Simulated assay, not measured.
Amino acid sequence: MTGLVVAMDGPSGSGKSSASRGVARALGLRYLDTGAMYRAITWWMLWKGVDLSDQAAIASRADEPVLVSGTDPESPAIQVDGVDVAGPIRSQEVTAAVSLVAAVPEVRARLVALQREIIGSGDIVVEGRDIGTVVAPDATLKVYLTASAEARATRRTAELTGTSVEAQQAAMARRDTLDSTRKTDPLSMAVGAVELDTTALNLDEVIAEVLRLIKERA
Rank of each mutant, 00 (worst) to 15 (best):
D9C: 08
R116H: 00
G35C: 06
I89M: 02
R39G: 01
A167H: 09
W43Q: 10
A153L: 10
M8Y: 07
A103R: 10
V107Q: 01
L27A: 11
Y144F: 13
N202I: 05
G162Y: 05
V5Q: 08
M189Y: 04
D33H: 11
E209L: 14
S99A: 12
A139D: 06
A97N: 04
R212C: 14
N202E: 12
R30Y: 00
E74R: 14
L196K: 03
P76I: 04
D33M: 11
R90Q: 11
T161W: 14
R175K: 14
M45G: 11
V126F: 10
K215T: 14
R39W: 03
V85P: 08
L201V: 06
R21C: 03
D130Y: 05
R110D: 06
R212K: 15
A62M: 02
P11W: 10
V98F: 06
D138G: 12
P105Y: 03
E195S: 06
L100E: 08
A153P: 13
M37I: 06
V112S: 07
D179A: 08
Q55H: 11
W43E: 05
M1W: 09
S121E: 15
M1K: 06
A86H: 09
V68R: 15
L203A: 01
A109K: 13
W47I: 12
R152C: 04
V83C: 13
A19Y: 00
A26E: 11
D72M: 13
K48C: 02
A96L: 14
D130N: 02
W47H: 14
A24P: 11
D130W: 02
R108D: 12
V6P: 01
G192T: 06
V134K: 01
K16D: 04
V210W: 04
A56G: 11
S91M: 14
V126W: 08
A200E: 13
V125S: 03
S60Q: 08
L201F: 02
V206C: 01
R152N: 01
R61A: 11
I78W: 04
I124D: 01
G162K: 12
T133A: 00
R156S: 11
T184C: 11
E166G: 12
V80C: 01
R39F: 07
Y144M: 13
D138M: 10
S60M: 12
L32D: 00
V80M: 01
L141Q: 05
V165P: 07
R156T: 14
V125Y: 00
A208M: 02
V85D: 06
D54Q: 09
I78G: 09
P105R: 02
A102N: 08
A151W: 02
R175H: 12
R174L: 08
D130V: 03
A96T: 13
S69F: 03
R21E: 08
G70P: 10
V101S: 00
R30Q: 09
T133K: 00
E106K: 03
E127K: 01
V134A: 06
A19K: 00
R110Y: 07
R152K: 09
A136E: 10
V80I: 15
A77N: 15
V85S: 04
T177I: 07
R21A: 02
I118F: 04
R217F: 03
I214Y: 06
A149E: 08
M8A: 14
V194M: 02
L196W: 03
L29A: 07
T199G: 04
T140P: 07
P76S: 03
G122R: 02
S14H: 04
A24Y: 09
V194N: 00
I124F: 03
R39D: 02
E150V: 06
G122I: 12
